[in-house]
Every structure is written in C-alpha cells, then in structure tokens.
Amino acid sequence: MDWSKPWFAHFAGRGQRWQRAALASHAALLAEMNADAADTRQTTGRGQRLAFIAQDELPPGAAYEAHIASTGRVPTRHNLHDFFNASMWFAFPRVKAALNARQSAAIDLLGVGPTRGGVRDTLTLFDENALLFACSDPALSAALRGFDWQTLLLQRRDAWGSSCEVRCFGHALLEKLITPFKGCTGHAWIVDVPSAYFEWDAAARDAWLDDAVSAALLTTDALTSRLFAPLPVLGIPGWWPDNETPAFYDDKSVFRSGRRADVKIGASKAG
C-alpha cells in the first residue's frame, strides 16, 4: 500500500504498523489491534470495551453488529476489508460506535431478516463507502449536491484545503483505492463546519468531525441513501495528478449530471 496517498494519510502511522504485523500473521495483527484498543479504551455502540477477535470466534447464528454491541468484540478476518474496518475504529471511534449503536438497535427491533431494511441499508452504505465532506462554504456544498462539477472541482479549485476537504471513511471504498480507478465514487456525507476549522491541525479536525458526525448519525431519524451525494474520489483536487488537466472532468460517464439537489445532507455543527 502507498501510505502517501491522501485517502490513507489520516491513519497512515497506525496503518503502516498494522501492515507489518499483518504480513507476519493474523495473530500478530490481532495482537497489535488489541494493544491499541487497550491503550485508547475505545468502546462500541453499547459501551463495551473494544477488542478484535478472529472471525471464527463469532458464535454460530450471531448477528455481527449485535455481537459487537453486546460484547465489544469485533470479528476480524485476515484481509484488507477488515483491516480498513478496524482502522476506522481508531480514526473515527465515535462514528463507528454510533453506526454500531444504530445497527444493533435496528436488529433488536426488527431482527435479522432476508433484507436489512432502509435504515440499516443506509448505515451499511455509510460504513462501507462514505466520504466525510467538511465544508464552511454553502456554495460548495450546494455544488456537490447539484452535481456542479465545474464549480466544485475546477472554478473553485483553490477553495480545497481552505473552505472544504474530504476524509475517506468507508472501509470498502478504502479497499477499492488500493488500486484506484477513475470511476471510483464515494458517498459524501456533508458536514457544515466553522471557518476556523481550517485553521486547526489534522488531529483537531478529525476529532471535531468524529463528534459532529456521530451526533448526526444518532439523532437523524430518516436515514436514507438520499442523504449522500456521489463524489468521484480521483476528481478531488490534489488527490490525483491527472485531474490537474481540466479535460479530466469531461468524462460524463464519471462526472455525471444528477438528481435535483433539494435534500439537506449530513451534519451541521458550524455554530
């Protein structure tokens, strides 16, 4: 993995250490994860202390999210998908706990059926494929909602890093970005941030996002896929060398026009 890529940068230090353990053995990886969990005292959706176990320790018939909520123990396979999933428990611990709390509550209410249902589908989409789009300029958020790629990614290119930025969250999305491709698209959850946000260091910004997004996930009743806006990851300014050329954005199969933009998305905590 190229840890210098911007989609890995916010957890690269831990990720590189875990990668060395993973290359040694599954047991070594779990030990490294559990050492970090013990140090941080992170908890899952119902306040249980976080720990990582091998997938085959999940009891037969147990629902994955319900097991995590009730025991704190996250079944983890020796693969990239679960590697990135575990990473997010440390990069955005409150968001992961909020997702787990909502998922387990939905399972308690409806059980585990042949389909997850709308709320659980939305939570899963967030967990697997979300981007956190932090923005202090409503015009940029509106451009993202409205599929106005020319404004968001070209005309207002200089605003990236001073009025908006992105963090990768979805662990399936991170797995896809091991071998990035132009059409790779995340589901952006828009977070309204104060302008002072961009004066803070990366750790402070991540902590603020963790708090704001987790609160929104716990309090938003009508969770649907329409709360996201699609964002092609390699189109983000500064994230891919080819997008320095304006013609990169002429590909209508990737940078599509889309649905009407009348839905308020994500968390607002800019006051």
Results as ranks from 00 to 15, higher is better:
Asp158Pro: 05
Gly170Leu: 01
Phe169Asp: 13
Ile178Pro: 05
Phe198Lys: 01
Glu199Asp: 11
Asp192His: 15
Gly170Thr: 00
Asp201Met: 11
Gln155Phe: 03
Leu173Pro: 05
Cys184Ala: 13
Ile178Arg: 15
Pro180Gln: 05
Phe169Arg: 03
Glu165Trp: 10
Cys164Arg: 11
Arg167Thr: 03
Pro194Ile: 01
Asp201Tyr: 09
Ala188Pro: 09
Ser162Asn: 01
Lys182Trp: 04
His171Lys: 02
Val166Glu: 01
Ala159Lys: 06
Gln155Val: 13
Asp201His: 04
Pro194Glu: 11
Ala188Ser: 10
Trp200Lys: 10
Gly186Trp: 00
Cys164Lys: 06
Leu173Tyr: 02
Ser162Phe: 00
Arg156Ile: 00
Ala188Phe: 10
Phe181Thr: 15
Asp201Asn: 12
Ser162Ile: 01
His171Gln: 03
Tyr197Arg: 05
Ala202Ser: 12
Leu177Tyr: 01
Gly161Arg: 00
Lys176Val: 03
His171Arg: 01
Gly183Asp: 10
Val193Phe: 08
Phe198Gln: 02
Ala188Tyr: 10
Lys182Leu: 08
Trp160Gly: 08
Ala159Pro: 04
Cys168Trp: 05
Gly161Val: 01
Phe181Gly: 10
Ile178Asp: 08
Ile178Glu: 15
Cys164Ile: 06
Glu199Arg: 04
Val166Gly: 00
Cys184His: 13
Ile190Thr: 03
Ser162Asp: 02
His187Ala: 15
Cys164Trp: 14
His171Glu: 11
Ala196Asp: 14
Lys176Cys: 09
Cys164Gly: 08
Trp160Arg: 14
Arg157Tyr: 04
Ala159Arg: 13
Phe169Lys: 04
Thr185Ser: 03
His187Arg: 15
Pro180Asp: 01
Lys176Met: 09
Ile178Phe: 08
Ser195Phe: 11
Val166Arg: 00
Glu199Cys: 04
Leu174Met: 14
His187Asn: 15
Leu177Ile: 04
His187Phe: 14
Gly170Pro: 00
Thr185Trp: 01
Ala196Gly: 15
Gln155Thr: 15
Asp201Thr: 09
Ala188Arg: 08
Lys176Trp: 02
Trp160Asn: 13
Leu177Thr: 06
Glu199Ile: 03
Ala172His: 08
Arg167Ser: 12
Lys182Gly: 02
Ile190Pro: 07
Ala188Gln: 03
Leu177Val: 12
Cys164Asp: 09
Glu175Ala: 10
Gly170Ser: 10
Cys164His: 13
Ala196Ile: 07
Ser195Arg: 11
Arg157Cys: 01
Trp160Gln: 12
Leu177Glu: 07
Cys168Val: 12
His171Thr: 00
Thr179Gly: 14
Asp158Ile: 05
Ala203Arg: 04
Trp200Glu: 10
Lys182Ser: 12
Trp189Asn: 01
Arg156Gly: 00
Ile190Glu: 05
Glu165Val: 00
Asp158Tyr: 08
Gln155Tyr: 12
Phe198Asp: 11
Ala196Arg: 14
Val166Tyr: 03
His171Asn: 03
Cys184Ile: 14
Ala159Leu: 04
Ser163Trp: 06
Thr179Arg: 14
Gln155Pro: 07
